[in-house]
Amino acid sequence: MRRTAALLSSHGGAGGRSIPQALAAVLVCPLSKKPLRYCEASGSLVSDAVGVSFPVVDGIPCLVPKDGRLLDDHQEKSEQDSSTGDSSG
C-alpha cells in the first residue's frame, strides 16, 4: 500500500488526470483487496494481484469489476518495468 501511495504521489503533480493522493491512499483492488498501482502510460489503475487494469475517466477512478480489463502477462511485465523505472528516476 505504501508503495502505491508513493507511486501515486510522485505522479500527483504531473497532470490533472491522475488521482489525488488522499484518495489513492485508501483505494484497493475491488476483487482482491490488494494495493493498486497507477500506470501513467495507460492512465489506469492496475491491480497486479489479479492482473486487471481499471480505467480512470476524467479524474474519477472506475473500479467496477465489469469495467476492468484483463492484462496479458507480457504487457503487465512491461508496464511494471516502466513504472518502477519512473519511481526510481
Partner: peptide, 14 residues
C-alpha cells in the same frame, strides 16, 4: 473525492 464502484465489491483499504 469521487469513485465509481460497486457496493458489492468495495475497493476501500481495510
Amino acid at each position: 473525492h469521487f469513485v465509481v464502484c460497486d457496493e458489492e465489491f468495495l475497493p476501500i483499504k481495510e
